[in-house]
C-alpha cells in the first residue's frame, strides 16, 4: 500500500486522476498542462509503455521542460517522430489508433458534450472562445476521452450553449446514429471536486468519487443537473507518494502546475 502525503494541491490530485485512467500500452493524444502531466505520471509509474503524441505532429517527445503548448519547441529534440496534423490527427486519430484523448472544456454538459466556441448566442456572443482546434476530432474519434473541467453551476451545464465537441450528444444511441466509431466517447469528467463517470445505459455523468475535503452533498449542489450518485461512491484516492515524486522531481520541478490554482482549480 502506497503512502499518501497530505501536502498536495488540487491540480496535482486531478493530474493523478487522469494518470490512473491510462493503461500500459495506450496510445494517448495529449495537450499541455494537466493532460501532459497526467499522461507522463502514468508513463513514469504504471504505464511505461504508453505512447504519447501531440496533435501538432510529435510522437514520443522527450521534453526537458514542461511544454507550454502543443507546438512548444521543447517537444522537438529527442522525439521519435515529428510530422504534422495530417499524420497525427488525420492518420493516427482518424485511422482509429488513439486509445485516450484529453480535453478541457469551458463548459461541459451531463452527456460530456464540450463547448469551447462561444458563451451565449453564437451570432451575438457574450464571450467568444477559441473554437474546436483538435477537440472535436479527439472527442469524436478517441476510444476513451478524459475531460477536465471546473466544478460549478456555470462551467458544468445541463446542456452546453454550443456543442463544439461530441460527448454522448443527446444520450443513448446518439453517437451510433451519427456514425461515430463504436466504443468511443467520454470516460470521465475530472473536476476540482470530483470524478464523474458515465452511466452505460443513460450515458449521463454520475458521481463516482468525491475529492478529499468535499462531500457527496456539496458535489451534488455544485452540479446543475440532477446528479446521480454511484452505489459505491467513495472518496478519491489522494496522490500517492510515487506519483507526487514523479511530478515534483522529474516532470515539473518548478511546480508550474500551481498556475491552475489561480485559474480556480482549488
Amino acid at each position: 500500500m502506497s503512502a499518501h502525503p497530505t501536502d498536495y494541491i488540487k491540480p496535482e490530485l486531478m493530474a493523478c486522476c487522469g494518470a490512473r485512467e491510462i493503461s500500459d500500452g495506450d496510445v494517448v493524444i495529449v495537450g499541455t498542462g494537466f493532460p501532459a502531466m497526467a499522461a507522463n505520471i502514468a508513463k513514469y509509474t504504471h504505464a511505461p509503455n504508453a505512447a504519447l503524441m501531440q496533435e501538432s505532429g510529435v510522437y514520443d517527445a522527450r521534453p526537458l521542460r514542461p511544454a507550454l503548448s502543443v507546438g512548444d519547441p521543447c517537444l522537438n529534440p529527442g522525439a521519435a517522430m515529428i510530422a504534422g496534423l495530417v499524420e497525427v490527427i488525420g492518420m493516427f486519430l482518424q485511422g482509429g489508433w488513439v486509445d485516450v484523448g484529453f480535453l478541457a472544456g469551458s463548459q461541459v454538459d451531463k452527456y460530456g458534450n464540450i463547448n469551447t466556441t462561444v458563451i451565449g448566442d453564437y451570432k451575438n456572443p457574450k464571450s467568444r472562445l477559441p473554437g474546436s482546434g483538435g477537440a472535436n476530432p479527439i472527442g469524436s474519434l478517441a476510444k476513451k476521452v478524459l475531460i477536465i473541467a471546473l466544478h460549478d453551476r456555470r462551467r458544468l451545464a445541463e446542456r452546453v450553449d454550443f456543442m463544439t465537441t461530441p460527448g454522448y450528444i443527446d444520450g443513448p444511441g446518439s453517437r451510433e446514429k451519427w456514425g461515430l466509431p463504436p466504443q468511443t466517447g467520454p470516460k470521465v469528467i475530472i473536476t476540482n471536486k470530483a470524478v464523474l463517470g458515465f452511466d452505460t445505459l443513460t450515458k449521463e455523468a454520475y458521481l463516482q468519487t468525491y475529492h478529499p475535503g468535499t462531500s457527496v452533498d456539496e458535489v451534488v449542489k455544485l452540479t446543475p443537473w440532477d446528479l446521480k450518485v454511484a452505489d459505491d461512491v467513495h472518496e478519491t484516492e489522494p496522490p500517492r507518494e510515487e506519483e507526487l515524486k514523479v511530478m515534483r522531481e522529474i516532470l515539473d520541478p518548478h511546480r508550474m502546475i500551481r498556475i491552475y490554482e489561480s485559474r480556480g482549480y482549488v
Binding site: 495530417v86 482518424q94 458534450n113 472535436n136 454550443f162 450528444i169 453517437r175 446514429k177 451519427w178 461515430l180
Partner: peptide
Amino acid sequence: PMMLMAGAMGMPFVPVKDMVGTDL
C-alpha cells in the same frame, strides 16, 4: 488540414470522420 490536403492533391473534396452530431 484534410481540406488543404485535398486542395494540394487537386481533389474536389475529401471525406472526414469528425464534426458529426455537433453544432459545427
